[in-house]
């Protein structure tokens, strides 16, 4: 069984060009200023592979996938 995971954005590194939201609109939205809004909680089952791929594509290395906190 795979561990549940979360997508985290580093707001200092992110430049808000919105590539991630363009690639994965089903999971990542943009706020009124063009910065990614990532739903709280775990990455839904089935999306993990895609989310991980998008995280790798972020030009600012602002996205990382982390194991969800236990509990």
């Amino acid at each position: 069984m795979t561990r549940r995971a979360r997508l985290i954005v580093d707001p200092i590194a992110c430049d808000g060009r919105g590539l991630c939201a363009e690639l994965l609109p089903a999971f990542i939205a943009l706020d009124d200023w063009g910065y990614p809004v990532i739903p709280g909680g775990d990455i839904p089952a089935g999306l993990e592979r895609e989310v991980t791929a998008v995280a790798r594509l972020c030009p600012r290395l602002a996205l990382r996938v982390e194991p969800a906190p236990r509990g």
Partner: peptide, 12 residues
């Protein structure tokens, strides 16, 4: 001045 939502959001 480092994080977009803080810079643009608080200004708005």
């Amino acid at each position: 001045g480092q994080c977009g939502p803080c810079v643009f959001g608080l200004d708005a």
